[in-house]
Measured scan of single mutants.
Amino acid sequence: EVPFKVVAQFPYKSDYEDDLNFEKDQEIIVTSVEDAEWYFGEYQDSNGDVIEGIFPKSFVAVQG
């Protein structure tokens, strides 16, 4: 069931425009499960802007 919160276990950096880049310990709200390997989610950056994109499930852990 979406949405749910995950926390980055590792930093994720990608050159693909659709990917969500983040640092370790970033909290991310997952709004869609793309497939067995990928989530789609969002978070607010330090400027208060909402950043969204896809990212690999293996880089995050589900909270709770």
Rank of each mutant, 00 (worst) to 15 (best):
D49T: 12
F4Q: 03
W38Q: 05
F10H: 12
E1A: 11
F59V: 14
I29G: 00
G64W: 08
S32E: 07
D35A: 08
N21C: 12
Q26L: 02
V60S: 01
D18L: 14
Y16T: 11
Q26M: 04
D25C: 15
E1S: 11
A36G: 13
I28Q: 00
I51F: 14
G64Y: 09
G53F: 02
G64E: 13
F40S: 04
A36L: 09
I54R: 15
D35K: 07
A36C: 14
S46Q: 12
Q9C: 15
Q26Y: 03
V30F: 02
L20T: 01
S46L: 11
V50W: 13
V60G: 02
I28T: 01
Q44R: 13
V6E: 03
K57T: 05
V33Q: 06
V6T: 04
G48M: 06
E34R: 15
L20M: 09
G41V: 04
K57I: 08
N21K: 08
I54Q: 12
F40P: 00
Y16N: 15
K24L: 07
I28Y: 03
G48I: 01
Q26K: 02
N47D: 07
I28D: 00
P56V: 02
F4D: 02
V2T: 11
E27C: 11
D15T: 11
F59C: 15
S58F: 08
I51E: 04
I29E: 05
I54G: 08
D49M: 13
K13M: 10
Q44I: 14
G53P: 01
E52V: 13
G48K: 04
I28G: 00
F40L: 07
Y16K: 15
Q9P: 02
P3E: 04
K13W: 13
Y43S: 00
D25N: 10
F55N: 02
F22S: 00
N21W: 13
T31M: 06
I29V: 10
E1F: 13
Q9L: 15
A61E: 14
E52S: 15
G48S: 03
Q44E: 13
E27G: 03
F10W: 12
V2M: 08
P3N: 06
I29M: 12
D49K: 14
G53D: 01
V30I: 04
S32L: 07
F55V: 01
S32A: 14
Y43M: 06
K24Q: 09
Y39N: 00
Q44K: 13
A8F: 03
F10N: 06
K5D: 03
F55M: 00
E27D: 06
Y39R: 00
E17Y: 10
E37T: 08
P3D: 04
I29S: 07
F22P: 02
Q26A: 04
P11N: 07
Q9Y: 07
Q63S: 12
F10M: 12
I51R: 15
Y16A: 14
Y16L: 11
V50L: 11
V62W: 09
V50Y: 07
Q44T: 14
A36I: 10
F55S: 02
E23Q: 08
D19F: 14
K13Q: 10
I54D: 01
D18K: 15
E27Q: 08
P11D: 11
P3G: 05
I29Q: 05
L20Q: 01
P3Q: 05
V33S: 06
F22D: 00
D45I: 07
F4K: 03
Y16V: 13
E42L: 10
D35S: 13
D45M: 10
Q9M: 15
D49I: 14
S46C: 12
D49S: 12
Y43V: 03
D35N: 14
I29K: 07
T31N: 05
T31Y: 06
I54Y: 15
I29A: 03
S32N: 11
E52G: 09
F10Y: 12
V2L: 12
D45R: 07
P11G: 09
L20H: 00
K13E: 08
E34K: 15
K5Y: 10
P3Y: 07
Y39K: 00
F10S: 07
G41M: 02
F55L: 02
S14C: 07
K13A: 09
E1H: 11
D18H: 15
S46T: 11
V60Y: 02
P11I: 05
S58Y: 10
E34A: 14
V6K: 00
V33H: 06
E1P: 10
Q26N: 00
V30H: 03
K57R: 13
G53S: 00
D49H: 13
E34F: 15
N21S: 11
K13P: 03
K5R: 12
K24T: 06
A8L: 04
Y12W: 06
Y43P: 00
